[in-house]
Amino acid sequence: MEMKATETAPLAMEWRQKKSTKPKSERFFEGLIKAGGYSSIVLIGAILFFILKESFPFLVGAFDFKNFFFSTNWNPASVNNVSYGILALIVGTLCVTCLSMLIAVPLGLATAFYISEFCSPRLRETYKILIEFLAAIPSVVWGFVAIMMINPMIIKTFNVPIGLNILNASIILALMSLPLIVSVGEDALRAVPDTYREAAEALGATRWEVATRVLLPAAKNGLLAAALLGVGRALGETMAVLMATGHSIQIPKSFFDPARTLTATIAAELGESPKGGEHYQALFAIGLVLFIISLIVNVTADHLIRGRKK
């Protein structure tokens, strides 16, 4: 094979020389394709740039690192006691995300196992289409379901005054992030070579043993990435959470307390804040925090998936 490679080298050279004489239109289109290829890098950069640009006066002015991250006092509209503390919002986001993942990760991974290892091919196709449909339900409809359906259910079942609370948002978020967890988890399981399964079965392992002792360790990283992407989805969800959590900026004491998340705060307040004002810039600063968190989550998930492939 080595020999062949050297033999074709002059030919490739010739081809390359020919390439430089290709017509202008062709070079134009290839330039266009290349530009398109770099567009996503440009866009990510642009997102960072514009969010920084809009929040810059706040970041160099009223921004106080300690107060911003460690104060629970979010009071941007007050006349004489303005305070931008997002701790309560961060805690709200964390509570909702953690509880929803407690529901969604086990359920999602179990489903991924079932779809990838146990069901018949035809059933698998059906489930996959169903998952796509589940993923297609828009977040505003989920928010509507939270208000109209889960809210009264929670009030009735747990005998609490309000049903728009952390529990409600977590249920909704769990349902919303399940499709992603299932499909990424299933990909991770399918990526385990069949030889692993065959080897284990040849040793007399049942499918349960194959699943828990062989597939689980082998697909560990991919499954972790699935969970992580679910977390990313839950962290970033806006409309459904805005509608389901109830409006109350506080450190929640139980799952039946209403809360407010980072995303919901931006959605709820940006419309009312005067453009270019400090409040408006502070909301962009929250956006910056969200952007950085999502960057970390996604890069980590990618790293895990890539680690598996090696």
């Binding site: 809009e54 992407l229 962009f284 956006g287 969200l290 960057l295 996604n298």
Partner: peptide
């Protein structure tokens, strides 16, 4: 793909 939609709105 992972950036929250509200951050897209800010952008």
């Amino acid at each position: 793909a992972g950036v929250p939609s509200i951050v897209h709105a800010l952008f």
